[in-house]
Design a protein around this nucleic acid. Structure first.
Length: 485
RNA sequence: GGCUCGUUGGUGAAGCGGCUUAACACAGCGCCCUUUCACGGCGUCAUUCACGGGUUCGAAUCCCGUACGAGUCACCA
């Protein structure tokens, strides 16, 4: 069996689309399922002048962050020619192949004017007819063709499509698809400037790079029969096709840059982990055989099976990603977590507080790194707040109950032998006992008083400990004064 | 408009003719745990698989049609 070779062929647009990333993931997984499989990166940078500075770096960085390491590519080399399409263009290979295809009867020269064809098309559409271009140039004699070319007349190379019969292909996810040849347009392969069209370049590149599995979005489903006709004319092996359903923003729209939808970089900036993003998008449109949902990349390689890719579009659900990201955050060891979270903790909390301890209480609560800053804002800035906050039905707390609780806590805190968390805990519990109230009636008001927030990462005891005796007492004082008014 | 593809709950989805009075997960809701929130635990959330026919003893599962949606029909990639 020949070894599997797949390729990821993005355009450097400066934006790593989630759908594209998923395609890259699937390409990587299909390749790596085979111990000798090869995953290739080919940059398709022939976009009409839309070159964006640093855009290829985004592609390299994204793949590296996701650990989707490619075996061949512009930056890592390989034995299959340039991996940058603009460089391949210069070599003239496409023209050679186009001419070869003409010899083989799979294509022909066409001297028609673009405007003429366009006019015909518009005429047909105006009449409500479907338009299939019937190229008169197909009837040209080879002598005439030669003389017109010799005379310097512009031409394109156009694919030959039989006017009868059908063309079928097998897709691993959509099954066998058959179309009537009579509904297929004879596509231009080589443009009048001598450069190939995207689809033709793709066919040639994939063949030259010995790609065995073509994985792409299902928007290519309709053009695949035309691809096959070219392969057949050349007598080349047809790759295995794996068309994937789209990743949607909502019921009707695909996720796209135009809509301003989140890209991979945006998600990372929002505090999502590349591992979690990969894990989540693997499950968008593909389902494993077991009920397992959390997968490492290695586990994904094991579990992945093309046959279980679905056929209908999947809506990107940020809530589920958020949940999954939280799972990753919670399941990592505290040191790793601290390393990841600290930059965010630094943004919100000055060094006078113990960041490591803060990370510990944060780990079970934050689902994304980016939300950390807001969760910790009360450390350096003690906010003013409404005494309404003391009202909590479940805790049986209200401003009236809060005042004596705060006063008692203040007195207790002032006389504590030390500021260990265990000491604070034991003494506070004893105080609850002594006052004959509920835990929440003491601890809830204290927590509100020292943070000014309804929700905090951690309870009154933990937070008192982190804030330190002096700061805690200061805040308690302010809170008591506010309540006394 | 032609062609191609799709349609199971709010979302991702399992299901491949009887084991399904449709799994699992997210979100939601309720309860429990708990010094808040979160975590964790428990429960609830589609009598029904877009709709209509047909095949069959039996259909979400097979066939046909309808509706709706998407993709594609460029000398763009």
């Amino acid at each position: 069996m020949t070894k599997v070779r797949t390729r990821f062929a993005p355009s450097p647009t400066g934006y790593m689309h989630i759908g594209n990333l998923r395609t890259a993931l699937y390409e990587y997984l299909v390749a790596k399922k085979d111990p000798e499989g090869v995953f290739i990166l080919r940059i398709e940078d022939t976009d009409q002048g839309r070159l964006i500075e640093g855009a290829t770096d985004i592609i390299y960085n994204t793949l590296a962050q996701c650990k989707l390491f490619h075996d061949e590519g512009p930056d890592v080399g390989g034995n299959y020619g340039s991996y940058v399409q603009s460089e391949r263009m210069k070599s003239g290979i496409y023209k050679e192949y186009a001419e070869k295809l003409i010899e083989l009867g799979g294509a022909h020269y066409c001297f028609c004017q673009e405007e003429d064809i366009q006019a015909q098309r518009e005429l047909a559409e105006a009449r409500g007819e479907s338009f299939i271009f019937n190229d008169p140039c197909k009837k040209l004699s080879s002598e005439e063709i030669q003389s017109r070319i010799a005379a310097g007349e512009k031409y394109v190379v156009r694919q030959n499509i039989p006017s009868t019969g059908t063309t079928s292909f097998d897709d691993e996810v959509y099954g066998t698809i058959t179309v009537e040849n009579s509904t297929l347009d004879e596509a231009i392969l080589l443009k009048s400037d001598g450069f190939p069209t995207y689809n033709f370049a793709n066919i040639i590149d994939d063949h030259m790079m010995e790609i065995t599995h073509v994985i792409r979005g299902n928007e290519y489903l309709s053009s695949t029969p035309k691809y096959n006709l070219v392969y057949q004319s050349f007598g080349w092996d047809i790759p295995t096709y794996i068309h994937c359903p789209p990743v949607m923003k909502d019921e009707h729209h695909k996720l796209s840059k135009r809509n301003g939808d989140a890209s991979f970089q945006d998600l990372v900036a929002k505090g999502y982990l590349p591992e979690a993003i990969i894990n989540y998008i693997a499950l968008l449109g593909w389902s494993p055989e077991t009920e397992q949902e959390i997968y490492t990349l290695d586990e994904l390689k094991q579990a992945f099976n093309v046959k279980r890719i679905g056929t209908s579009g999947a809506i990107f659900d940020i809530d589920k990603l958020t949940w999954m990201n939280g799972m990753y955050l919670r399941n990592m060891d505290i040191d790793t977590y601290f390393e990841l979270a600290n930059p965010y903790i630094e943004k919100a909390v000055s060094n006078k507080y113990n960041h490591k301890y803060i990370a510990k209480i944060l780990q079970q609560r934050a689902n994304t790194l980016a939300e950390i800053e807001e969760m910790l804002d009360f450390f350096d800035n003690y906010p003013s707040f409404d005494i309404e906050l003391y009202n909590n039905k479940k805790m049986k707390s209200n401003p009236e109950i809060a005042l004596p609780s705060l006063k008692a806590t203040k007195e207790l805190y002032e006389n504590l032998p030390n500021w260990e968390e265990s000491t604070i805990h034991d003494e506070m519990m004893a105080l609850v006992e002594k006052l004959g109230i509920k835990n929440g009636q003491l601890l809830y008001p204290v927590r509100v008083a020292i943070t000014g927030k309804q929700f905090t990462p951690g309870g009154a005891i933990e937070l008192s400990h982190i804030l330190g005796k002096e700061e805690t007492l200061r805040r308690l004082d302010i809170a008591i004064k506010q309540l006394e008014q």
